[in-house]
């Protein structure tokens, strides 16, 4: 953490700039959502990319994750991996149901 007075003085401008950038990108997200892309899935993907970018700005600049201690990174890395597991396995298990191929009858043996 920058306890240095000068550094904090400098970062104030940065905070305001990032705030403006976030609002700008929010407006862009709204606009993008009305654009008719070939599939709606592409709209979602695009929207999520912008949202992730915004979230990264908040996390890195406002939450000072651009210069944090290693312990915090380790905790967060572990958490993020688990959150991804949560998402990925949910979706995979939804996409991979047991396919029902009809009742077994003795004539199937023939």
């Amino acid at each position: 953490m920058s306890d240095n007075v000068e550094e904090i003085q400098k970062s104030i401008k940065k905070y305001l700039f990032i705030g403006g950038l976030l609002i700008l990108f929010s407006a862009i997200t709204v606009w993008l959502s009305y654009v008719e892309l070939p599939t709606h899935g592409q709209n979602i993907l695009l929207g999520m990319i912008v949202a992730t970018f915004k979230a990264a700005l908040v996390a890195l600049i406002f939450m000072h994750l651009n210069h944090e201690r290693s312990v915090i990174y380790k905790i967060l890395a572990f958490t993020v991996v688990l959150a991804i597991v949560l998402f990925a396995l949910f979706i995979f298990s939804h996409e991979d149901p047991l396919v029902f191929s009809g009742f077994y009858t003795p004539s199937d043996q023939l």
Binding site: S26, T29, S33, G47, M48, A51, K54, A55, V58, A59
Partner: peptide
């Protein structure tokens, strides 16, 4: 963090 959650909530619920 609350702001960060909203950044995802807004597009997912309102826009997409």
């Amino acid at each position: 963090f609350v702001d960060l959650v909203w950044i995802f909530l807004f597009p997912l619920l309102y826009l997409l």
